[in-house]
Nucleic acid binder design. Structure first.
Length: 328
DNA sequence: GTTTTTT
DNA sequence: AAAAAACAACGCCGC
DNA sequence: GCGGCG
């Protein structure tokens, strides 16, 4: 045996081999992404495999804004919304109007995001097929530091009731933080401007009726003791965290869909994590958001007053974008 | 996490 | 060859 | 236009 032959070369040495999940090569599979829970990159990839069936209906084939933290949740993170160097083919580079965006369509796409260091997934409220017409409305309830969770629960019910009064069906999810989201599926007909106006009117009416409880102003100083009813998720290019997306925060919390009867005093959103949510899904025969797609309704023309008289069937989005709106 | 530049 | 640096979003609101 | 905000 030639002594020159390196007995232990790169081959079979200490270097951790990359491995595959859902067909995607994962480098540094043992890297810990959430220190407190010891959740690794491999764990996160398997999490996505487990929840893909529930996550993809809300995140696939939509423009995405991503939160990437290659070194883990405790390190510096950055947003990404454009295709990047080294992008895996399982992640699609797409054109939306004048901009380039990224999208996924299957579990491999989700795992490819994990490989890129993505911890959070924030999809548009519209699909690639019809990016100018939102197919969901999101009301984000964000409590000030000094507001208890019981008030947030009450606020969610309040939003649900107001949506219902407008003919829409609200679905509930945790955000992974201290707030809640109420999401209403829409038949994509109205444009972003109408969606924004509707959500603003809803938030405004809540503040009008209970100014001590709600504000629709985002300034922190305006919020003390109140819940910020954030309607700005409903503008073109804006996003809200996806159902079943993890958050890059201590504890590895997950934005988790809930049935309305789960909105109890004992609810602890922090218990819904990358570690616990897969078991919750596997152990329950019922999807908390069952019927979501079937509940889609067109956005009402107006919330209650201030109807915007327009020819009823005029083109929804004049689409001030996309250079070439094949103009009628 | 990837790519490019510097030592 | 190893280390360091550069890069990775954006729109709305109020002033 | 700039800072605050998510």
């Amino acid at each position: 045996m030639p002594p020159s032959a390196p007995a232990t070369s790169k081959r079979g040495s200490a270097k951790a081999a990359t491995e595959r999940v859902a067909g995607i090569a994962l480098t540094h599979p043992d890297r810990v992404l959430w220190e407190g829970q010891g959740i690794t990159k491999r764990d996160l990839a398997r999490y996505h495999e487990a929840v893909a069936g529930h996550l993809l209906p809300h995140a696939a084939n939509r423009p995405l804004t991503l939160v990437r933290c290659p070194g883990g949740s405790g390190t510096s993170c950055f947003f990404a919304k454009h295709p990047w160097a080294g992008l895996d083919p399982a992640v699609e580079a797409v054109r939306v109007g004048d901009d380039e965006a990224v999208a996924v369509r299957d579990p491999a796409g989700l795992v490819a995001l994990v490989q890129a260091g993505v911890l959070e997934i924030h999809p548009w409220g519209a699909t690639l097929a019809d990016p100018e017409r939102p197919d969901r409305l999101v009301i984000d309830l964000d409590p000030a530091e000094d507001v208890g969770f019981d008030a947030v629960r009450a606020a969610a019910l309040e939003v649900r009731g107001r949506l219902e009064a407008a003919g829409l069906v609200g679905f509930l999810k945790t955000t992974g933080g201290k707030g809640l989201h109420v999401v209403a599926p829409l038949v994509p007909r109205a444009g972003w401007e109408e969606a924004r106006a509707f959500a603003a009117a809803l938030a405004g009416s809540m503040e009008h009726d209970a100014p001590s409880r709600f504000t629709h102003a985002s300034r922190k100083a305006e919020r003390t003791g109140r819940i910020f009813v954030d309607y700005l998720r409903n503008t073109r290019g804006a996003t809200a965290v996806a159902p079943y997306s993890p958050r890059a925060r201590p504890g590895a919390p997950v934005a988790t869909p809930l049935a309305w009867d789960e909105l109890t005093p004992g609810l602890r959103p922090g218990d819904l994590t990358v570690a616990t949510v897969p078991a919750r899904l596997a152990g329950s025969t019922r999807d908390p958001w069952e019927g979501f797609a079937a509940a889609a309704r067109p956005l009402p023309t107006s919330l209650e007053r201030g109807a915007t008289p327009r020819s009823s069937r005029s083109p929804p989005p004049p689409a001030s974008r996309g250079g070439a709106s094949r103009g009628a």
